[in-house]
Design a protein around this nucleic acid. Sequence first.
DNA 1: TGCAAACTTGCATAGAGTGCAATATTCGAC
DNA 2: GTCGAATATTGCACTCTATGCAAGTTTGCA
Lengths: 201, 201
Amino acid sequence: MVPMSTGLRERKKLATRSALHLAALQLVAERGLDEVSVDDIAERADVSPRTFFNYFPSKIDAVVGLDPAAPQRQVEAFLSRPADESPVEAMRAVAREQAAEMSENTELWPLRLTVIDAHPAALARLAAAFGESEQVLAAAIGERTGTRVGADAYPALLAGVAAAAMRTSLHRWFAGDFTAALPDLVDETWDLLAAGLPAPR
Amino acid sequence: MVPMSTGLRERKKLATRSALHLAALQLVAERGLDEVSVDDIAERADVSPRTFFNYFPSKIDAVVGLDPAAPQRQVEAFLSRPADESPVEAMRAVAREQAAEMSENTELWPLRLTVIDAHPAALARLAAAFGESEQVLAAAIGERTGTRVGADAYPALLAGVAAAAMRTSLHRWFAGDFTAALPDLVDETWDLLAAGLPAPR
DNA sequence: TGCAAACTTGCATAGAGTGCAATATTCGAC
DNA sequence: GTCGAATATTGCACTCTATGCAAGTTTGCA
């Protein structure tokens, strides 16, 4: 159960998914979102148009190409932080880890963010994905702090703030042509938050 | 130019838009999102299916039914706050005003939020709308604080945090069956933010 | 009253997205 | 290696979304 790195079947699926995502990114970068059809993407990735929808529920999802397991991994990382850390500290540490991972593949995230930022529909889909992520994260925060998500403001707020922090950091990374170190940007952002968002200067 | 409350033409357009939005809300509340087609919505609102798309770019937009001018009004409210207020104070005041407005019509927002919360696609669209709103708001914050949106983290972060605060407050309002006063929920949320998100208890 | 601008509608069309059944591939046991 | 079960791919048929365009209505205004 839950194999770490398995046989041919699993690897092929990952490869196909990755090929579809990359094909979508490249085609949209070349021509723009509206000039690219699902058929185009499937053709470049060497699968049938019908197979495309076995991997992504929509065209825009293939462009954004987020890992559907990412929210769950984020939750696990958060819950396994040392118990003496405050929720904010733990969340911040998880964000820094995530940032470090994103920085590792020096090609994928910059390409992704560049394409996404140029297309409002993709930006919208990304915002929606962050929103979904927030919900499972809020549940985890509620679990850790012993508060109820509906009743208390804290869990949903911290989840929302964490998502905003990551989005802000990613956007600054992009705006600076990916020359800065993403984990550093994340740290700066969380410094502002911990201080209660003091006015600049 | 820019008439406050104008002739028959303007009023009819607003009425049609409102009728389409309400029809979408009611139908989706009755049957669920996938059992409602654009044709159904147009029929209940007594316009042709083609006219539907003169008012909303997609079915889900009709369900969510947000005012496309809202982000701009938010920006204007923010920029016209007294100059001695800090950005956080100004943003918080704007949020409280918005909350008060939303509470005024005791039918619309509760129905909206109930329908939206029951349908992930609508929730995603709402998250995307908040994201769009953040962008223009960030520009305004940058203007007020004299910082550059791409270079400095502050404007985008405060905009993102403000959006998270509003979403959190709306969700708590909904979770408590709309018995609480929304402006109070907003205040509590901003208290947490200003204190740097201290751990509960 | 009558002209111009703005709105509605029908028609045609491209493309997204889904269910279903047939085919092909991989896995695991032997 | 071979075979059967499980899983993945594909083609087909179909519905619905969404948009451009042109013709017909309604409204605003002089």
